Amino acid sequence: MEYDALTGWDDVTTAEAYAAFTRAYPMYSASSRDLAARAALPRSRVVVDLCGGTGTTAEAILALAPADATVISLDSSAAMQRIGRHLLTDARLTWVNAPAEHLADHVPAHSVDAVVCNSAIWKTDVAAVVTAVRRILRPGGRFVFNIGGAFAGVAHPDSLVPPAGPSVTSLIQQIAARDYGITPTPPAVPPKLPLPAITYLLADAGLAVTTAEVTGQRTTFAERAAWLSIPVFACPEGPLSYEQKMGILAEATAHARPDDVTVTSWLVIVAELPQAAL
């Protein structure tokens, strides 16, 4: 089976691997807690976890939301949500299986205090999603999300410090080139969602950016390697089977120190709907 990082999420193997990763490693839970802390949740009554997957971000939201709050986790992958329903049984949580762009078809207009989206907005039609978020937010409501550094064209200062050893990506590239003649794909230029572009889309929908911060997240080699074992993230891109990619990853892991740390960059944005918007 071909796995694609944009469209390949509605697959049992991917969903199970992703859920196992989020329970074993802190990458998604830590970024979820960071976003939830920025969303003013203790005074929120209705919160949307957008592109919620198996519920890692919903779990962070539920930890801060009031006892009488309603949390809606919306995702287009039924496979991811089936796992999430077993992992999270909080009565405050409702699951909606739909694309992010169709958010406003499932949530009443001007009814939501906060929308939180972790590690996913660049996989959507961003303009359509922003418009949908604007429609469902109450005046004063917040839209809190992050964009991967490569997609936003930003780098945290700590990410520029050379790692102690070779990165998992560089090792994978070396092995793929040696054994299969596959050369690395150059990064997309320009970045897909730089801050000026996302600020323009938000402003066009009537949302104002209140915070835009570049953060750095520490990631061990072991965690990065485990992340790359999730089928939709397996490298390198190209004609290799998943099994061949896992063979490359296993060899790369054998040549590295699992505790070596790299820093991943994120652009974290908080936007609000002005109180006088309606």
Rank of each mutant, 00 (worst) to 15 (best):
I198D: 07
A37Y: 07
L249W: 10
T219A: 08
G165L: 07
A37E: 13
S265Y: 00
Q217S: 01
T94M: 13
R43W: 05
E2K: 15
V46A: 11
L137K: 03
I230K: 09
V133T: 03
A15K: 06
L228K: 14
G165Q: 10
P26R: 01
V130D: 03
A98M: 02
P42E: 01
V130N: 05
A164E: 13
T22H: 07
G247H: 09
P196C: 04
P157S: 04
I83T: 12
P274M: 00
V129L: 10
W95G: 13
Y25H: 12
V133R: 01
W9A: 00
L207Q: 02
R38Q: 10
Q173L: 11
T220H: 07
L74E: 09
F151Q: 15
G247F: 03
A100Q: 02
R45M: 14
K192Q: 15
E243V: 09
A212N: 06
A225L: 14
V189K: 10
D105C: 11
T169Q: 15
P196G: 00
D179R: 01
S159D: 02
S111A: 12
L6I: 15
R85A: 14
T94N: 15
V154M: 01
P196V: 01
I182W: 07
S77C: 05
D105K: 10
G84P: 02
M1T: 14
R82D: 14
L160A: 10
E243R: 09
E251D: 10
S73W: 01
V107Y: 05
H102N: 13
D125G: 07
P42A: 03
G140D: 04
T185Y: 02
V154Q: 02
W227N: 15
L137G: 04
H102P: 06
A30D: 09
R92Y: 02
A98G: 10
T262N: 12
G181V: 02
F145D: 13
M1A: 15
A226H: 09
T131A: 14
L228Q: 15
G206V: 00
N118P: 10
G153M: 00
S111N: 06
L249S: 09
H102A: 15
L93H: 11
G149M: 03
M1Y: 11
S159T: 06
T56M: 12
P163R: 11
A30L: 02
L240S: 11
V71G: 08
P26M: 00
I61T: 11
Y180T: 05
V154I: 02
R134V: 02
Q81E: 07
G148M: 12
D75W: 03
V189H: 10
N97D: 07
S241E: 03
G149F: 04
T219D: 06
E101S: 08
G165T: 11
L93C: 07
L249N: 08
E237C: 12
V115N: 02
D204L: 04
E243C: 04
Y3Q: 07
A127H: 08
V96A: 01
S73E: 08
Y28E: 08
L35Q: 06
L202R: 03
R142W: 03
A67P: 05
R135W: 08
Q217F: 01
G55Q: 09
R257P: 08
I175Y: 07
L35Y: 07
W122Y: 15
A100P: 09
D11R: 11
R82L: 08
G52A: 04
A203F: 03
P162M: 06
L267D: 04
W9Y: 09
L41D: 08
A17L: 09
